[in-house]
């Protein structure tokens, strides 16, 4: 289990991380979101042991990560700009990773390499941006890490490969009971993948919730009546958001699912449907009390 406690990181006068605490249990994929400059990448680097925290600590299974090579062998960090040395090919990088990560699995590497259609002898630096990222993901997952850290997971990937990478990561985490932290500035990117969501804003962690819990805390319904109606008709319910087009209204409601169903059914609507709540809508609900411009999170890459 990854445990981050009261983490502070400053660069000169800039407070990049301010009292951040987060726990990521095994078998969990945590989506870390936030706008540009919110501290996502810095947090990932501190977790990966790239830099030291000024205060607080980061532990994996109770051990501190920074300057702990044995523990870092179980952590793989894929940066937002995957790096490969000059002239390095997949073959050479495989040898390099194999020498550093005892758990590196050649068979898994061959399987992923075939899946991602990566050549053994092409210099990685000469590959396209997407291919470079796939190469980094392939090597990282072949090392079978207990904790996978990925910055801007699907950046530069086409929709098919994006889906493939997500599936691979999800199945890998499930199969090995490992964990992953995926950083993105786009909620849609993480929509279908994450079990846990954390939101960084202005170097503070302002939200850390289980996605399942989030989705159970609010519900989206669509209703229609055979007579005119307004928002006041739902005054008995806790309405978070209300939109009406002609005789059809879409609402996000807070509260118990059974109570909502019973109450709305009693109104004898022509149409009543419980709709899946998107992460955007959940964030809208969760962040309504915060002075936070969440719309920036909605402008990411299309899923």
């Amino acid at each position: 289990m990854l445990c981050i406690k009261n983490l502070h990181k400053r660069f000169g006068h800039i407070h990049a991380l301010d009292n951040v605490s987060l726990t990521v249990p095994r078998g969990t994929i945590c989506g870390l979101v936030g706008s540009n400059g919110s501290g996502k990448s810095t947090l990932l680097r501190v977790i990966a042991g790239v830099m030291r925290a000024d205060e607080g600590h980061v532990t994996l299974d109770g051990e501190r990560i920074f300057e702990n090579p044995a523990l870092k062998q179980r952590i793989l960090f894929v940066s937002d700009e995957p790096y490969a040395p000059q002239g390095a090919t997949m073959r050479r990088m495989t040898a390099f990773y194999r020498s550093l990560y005892p758990t590196f699995d050649d068979a898994r590497r061959a399987e992923l390499q075939a899946q991602f259609r990566l050549d053994d002898d092409t210099p990685i630096r000469s590959m396209s941006r997407g291919k470079r990222r796939l190469a980094a993901v392939c090597l990282a997952l072949s090392a079978k890490p207990q904790l996978l850290l990925m910055d801007e997971t699907a950046d530069g990937l086409d929709p098919v490969m994006r889906h493939t990478v997500k599936s691979v990561i999800a199945s890998d985490v499930a199969a090995r009971d490992s964990s992953a932290i995926l950083v993105s500035h786009s909620l849609r990117e993480l929509e279908s993948l994450c079990d846990q969501l954390a939101l960084l804003h202005d170097s503070h962690l302002i939200l850390d919730r289980d996605v399942f819990d989030l989705k159970r805390a609010a519900y989206k319904i669509q209703v229609a009546f055979d007579h005119p109606f307004t928002k006041e008709r739902f005054s008995g319910l806790s309405v978070v958001q209300y939109e009406q087009h002609a005789s059809v209204a879409t609402l996000i409601l807070e509260g118990d699912r059974d109570v909502i169903e019973t109450t709305v059914s009693a109104m004898e609507p022509l149409l009543f449907e419980m709709l899946p709540l998107t992460l955007e809508e959940i964030f809208l609900y969760e962040l309504r009390s915060l002075d936070y411009d969440y719309t920036a999170l909605l402008g990411g890459d299309d899923a």
Binding site: R45, E67, K72
Partner: peptide, 18 residues
Amino acid sequence: NRRADSDFYHALPMTKTA
């Protein structure tokens, strides 16, 4: 001098001294 390069090497399983 480059963030991506620095991230790659410093995240490897070894001490900064090594």
